[in-house]
Design a protein around this nucleic acid. Structure first.
Lengths: 147, 147
DNA sequence: ATACCTGCAAAGTCTTTGCAATCAA
DNA sequence: TTGATTGCAAAGACTTTGCAGGTAT
């Protein structure tokens, strides 16, 4: 793996070493590009929601060479591996969330902004019976607002 | 308004007259195209969820002349007027729901199919405080399944 | 008469694909 | 070595736009 430093995380919250560990634990080859994107995605406290274009822009800004196609590939691999999640909005863009455990969002229809909801809102929710033969994947809640 | 009959509703659940009434009530001009699309959209018991392409295909199949651009325009006008709703999924396509009152869905990740949930699941849900200055639009619930 | 609506085709936005070169195991 | 991954550019899928002509009020 070529060593390339992520320059975008002010606090470098996620070291390259830890990024590699995250990838290996998820069964993903720790290539240079994936390590960079992992650092960018999991920088603590920022960038919890992202799109392919936005992540690409950040990687360029951070001085890291990654192609847009690879960003798309990577986001899908990461999603498949379960370390990030796709978020349902009705934008034509696909949003990803770096917190695979937290599925509830405010969605600002005026700006397209996504804001996390930390409350455990769905704790007591009783789901109806699933369609025949179906497996439950997850439950998404989107609270639409306007600002 | 040119008179053009919708041939796609086996039971013609929504007559042209009623479609006109729906449109007028919503403050929309009852043009021929809008009447046709209204009939197709609100045919009872079928096609509760649709996309622009799918609605376009149905209108062609029904022998009605509507352009794809008009289908897009119309879906947006109807959404703005509140007689249909956009549904949040993470597909790149935009889905619309002809029931503006019912926001809960199963979303089959394998097939992209949307299935209504009729239970009043969110009756007792307590929302967290909205971000400052924000207005609540609606609450969407998406139960992701795989078949 | 006037403002709104429609259709067409072109353009735009976002995403995927094909394939040769490169890389990790 | 070998299969996975990357980058590039081209293609693809979906949606929007500009504008001339048509339509409802």
């Amino acid at each position: 793996m070529t060593d390339q430093k992520c320059m975008d995380c002010p606090e470098q919250t996620l070291s390259n070493e830890r990024a590699v560990a995250v990838l290996v634990a998820a069964g993903l080859r720790p290539t240079a590009q994936r390590v960079i994107l992992t650092c960018l995605l999991f920088c603590k406290g920022t960038y919890r929601h992202t799109t392919a274009e936005e992540l690409y822009a950040r990687s360029i800004k951070a001085g890291c060479k990654v192609s847009l196609a690879t960003v798309y590939n990577t986001l899908h691999s990461f999603t498949k591996a379960g370390i990030i999640r796709q978020i349902a909005t009705d934008s034509t863009k696909v949003y990803f969330d770096t917190n695979p455990e937290e599925h509830y969002h405010f969605y600002d229809e005026s700006t397209g902004e996504l804001i996390n909801i930390h409350d455990d809102l769905l704790k007591d929710l009783k789901l109806p019976p699933l369609p025949k033969g179906a497996i439950l994947c997850s439950v998404d809640l989107l609270v639409r607002i306007r600002s």
